[in-house]
Amino acid sequence: MLIELIVSFFLLVGASFALVGSIGLARLPDFFTRLHGPTKATTLGIGGVLIASVIYFSARSAGLSLHEALIALFLFMTAPISAMLLAKAAIHRKVTTRSRVPPRFER
């Protein structure tokens, strides 16, 4: 019962952060602000969902179930890299933006 409550809590927190990240992607005004939503909220969202999964399957069977941590680790490592690559590509393509790109970074 207690386990169910904890799993439910992490599931709901994770899913709501994922939703917030996607709302940010949908309604923020320009590309660079939109980049913030997915890299932060969605990453934490999936973290919450994965913690729920770890707790659920660990309580379900004897012994720890940690392989979900692998996905979380991988996403936490790659989210900043894909964000930076996307930002570089956007600067390169000169997308319309509300914030001025410093001239030395325009290539």
Binding site: F17, V20, G24, R27, P29, T33, K40, A41, V101, F105
Partner: peptide, 24 residues
């Protein structure tokens, strides 16, 4: 900090996006 960052970003995202002051 990541947790706080997310609450902060959530607040900004759900607030008024036109009032954001994005800067490089």
């Amino acid at each position: 900090d990541i947790l706080i960052a997310n609450l902060e970003v959530a607040r900004l995202v759900l607030g008024a996006p036109q009032r954001l002051r994005p800067t490089f």
